[in-house]
């Protein structure tokens, strides 16, 4: 589809801009996606007018002979206008499907105008309606993708925030840290644990860190690997890791799985680990003489 063939839609947008705008607006109203509760008429008209202008401008440059590639340079202004309007509307609580319908509402009024103007050339009419439809569909899809990308970003961010909350590093004593692990330890969480721990080692200049797995529900091969990798990274930093909270059952499972902890120090309880940590940094715990009578 070349620019010359597309001219009817272009002509319509040039000559009947206001009419198209009003018709688009009316269709949205009819389909209940205008949301007068969130936007005044003036506001909505301004948004539509911006979009339509960008749309008309893009059509002058776009190549419609192939599949509509919204990522192409010709559509960049429209993409920008679209994401601005999308942002404004979603921030006020417009749902993704409403936003899609909002754009699709442009199809029908333009098709009607095309029908009026090309009533004597059915072949061309069909072609133009179909091409115009493709473009509007592409935009509706673009909006959908935009939503998904944004939602993904929000999920990632929330996940990161949750992880930060769920992996607190605690300083037990000068140069001694602990990180109590609770729940499950998947790859993403393991990485977060490692990152928090290593940063805390630098911050506190810690020499011994106790990774306590008392609260870890299942220790399988993968979890064991994560723990050993964490211990290896701690050692690379110049500190030592002690893995504590290894119950008799976990010890048996680990051996059955063929997990070799190598040089990594392990202790059954956090209490035993703490005693070992103190020994390594040169402290000891002693009972004070009982002076009570």
């Amino acid at each position: 589809m070349t620019a010359a063939q597309m001219s009817e839609v272009q002509t319509i947008l040039a000559e009947e801009f206001e009419a198209v705008l009003e018709a688009w607006f009316a269709t949205q109203k009819r389909e209940g996606v205008r949301r007068p509760d969130l936007f005044s008429d003036a506001e909505s008209r301004r948004q539509l007018s911006e979009l339509l202008r960008a749309f008309a401008a893009a059509l002058q440059q776009a190549d419609l002979s192939t599949a509509v590639d919204i990522e192409a340079e010709a559509w960049s202004d429209l993409r920008l206008a679209l994401s601005e309007v999308t942002l404004v509307r979603t921030e006020r609580g417009v749902a993704p499907w409403e936003m899609t319908a909002f754009v699709l509402a442009l199809k029908q009024p333009v098709a009607s105008l095309l029908q009026e103007r090309l009533s004597d050339d059915t072949g061309r009419l069909l072609q133009e309606v179909s091409d115009f439809g493709r473009v509007v569909d592409a935009f509706a899809m673009h909006i959908n993708e935009h939503f998904i990308a944004e939602r993904d970003e929000i999920i990632d961010r929330q996940r990161a925030e949750m992880m930060e909350l769920s992996t607190p590093v605690v300083q037990l004593w000068e140069r001694v840290l602990t990180i109590p692990l609770i729940g499950t330890l998947d790859s993403m969480r393991a990485q977060e644990v490692m990152e928090n721990l290593l940063n805390a080692i630098v911050e506190h200049q810690a020499e011994v860190v106790i990774v306590d797995i008392t609260g870890v529900r299942v220790v399988d091969t993968q979890v064991a690997q994560h723990l050993l990798r964490t211990a290896a990274a701690v050692r690379l930093m110049g500190a030592e890791a002690i893995i504590s909270g290894i119950s008799p059952k976990i010890a048996q499972t680990m051996v059955e799985l063929g997990v070799d902890v190598g040089e990594v120090t392990t202790r059954p309880t956090i209490r035993a680990a703490l005693a070992e940590a103190f020994r390594r940094v040169g402290f000891s715990i002693a009972r004070i003489e009982d002076t009570r009578v």
Partner: peptide, 27 residues
């Protein structure tokens, strides 16, 4: 070997290089 950055330590472990034969210190 001293002063390794946290991100470097994590990356090395991911590369499966634990420098097992080397001594390390914080600083």
């Amino acid at each position: 070997i001293v002063g390794m950055r946290p991100a470097v330590a994590m990356t090395l472990v991911e590369l499966d290089m634990d420098l097992a034969g080397s001594r390390t210190a914080l600083s």
